[in-house]
Amino acid sequence: MKPEFKLLDRREFVNFVSRSAALLGLAKVGSESATAATTSAEQTSTNAFAYDVSRLQKTDPKLIAYEEVTRWRSPRTSVRQIAIGPGDQVHVCAGHYISVFNPQGQPAAEVALTGPADSLAVASDGTIYAGLRDHVEVFDAKGQRQAVWAAPDRKSWLTGLAVGKQDVFAADSGKRVIWHFDLAGKLLGRVGEKNASQNAPGFIVPSPFLQVAIHADGLLRVNNIGRHQVEAYTFAGEFEGAWGRITTAIDGFCGCCNPIGFALLPDGRFVTAEKGLPRVKIYNHVGEFESVVAGAESFPENARACNGLNDCAHGGLDVGVDGQGRIYILDLVTSEVRVMKPRA
């Protein structure tokens, strides 16, 4: 190839430099307008496949019958259940600990466990029962360990505890049964296994949230989460009835398994806690929907993101009730305790 230019004199050099400067400037303008274009494109991008439940996350304000008194955040995370003891002391099991608060949320005590607890119950004398995956740890009111009861089955995964005057019931999500113990930890019987003679339909437990409570009417209540119902049993295991219906509407339970938690008001009505659409509601003693304590919009982190963006199995809520009928909501995502009282 022949040389394209004969001599690079000063004028040519200046020419060259100015041209390349202009080119660079042009490149800069170009890339910035490209960035601006991509930025605006980003903002209009959509997801045609979004799973949109935002409509269901709004609650009719007329249905909300409670208001918040106070709230506090548990110093320990990985909270799982809440139970209210004598003197309205608030017990929260959080990872390897049980944290005890006074009703205002001031930390009062802490009990260390041998492992993470999934369930919790407090007797009227202050004895604390903590259900770990495969055993129950019993502490006196001062936090001294009194006993350890091994779970009766290899598959056990204890997720609910209820303590009465002479009985302790442990809900076992792994074995799908309620174990009946006496106060010394002796196994007395089993409740709720599929059994035609007792009319028991059997527990459907897709995720570890089976709970149990002793109602003032003398029957057990168990949340059969896979059937979206709360069921009643005698201590001997006789099925006595159930309530609850499957719907995303506010008066029912939705998702794979709800309600994941419940508690009993002093007058025998029910407080239920749900996951997926995190909400707390009141049902009367026969299971008719009454009102909402807090809807999904009250738990934005819980509703948006479960526990992190990927771990919804560990999201949701749990509830407890104190002697005055105030409701304590435990947010499993934010580790917050909210105290609610009826609206004046």
């Binding site: 799973y51 439940v53 897709p206 995720s207 939705c254 998702g255 794979c256 398994c257 996951k275 997926g276 659409l277 479960c306 990927n310 919804c312 199995a313």
Partner: peptide, 9 residues
């Protein structure tokens, strides 16, 4: 998303 949000994932 539906399974994760309400179910076992």
């Amino acid at each position: 998303e539906g399974c994760l949000r309400f179910g076992n994932g």
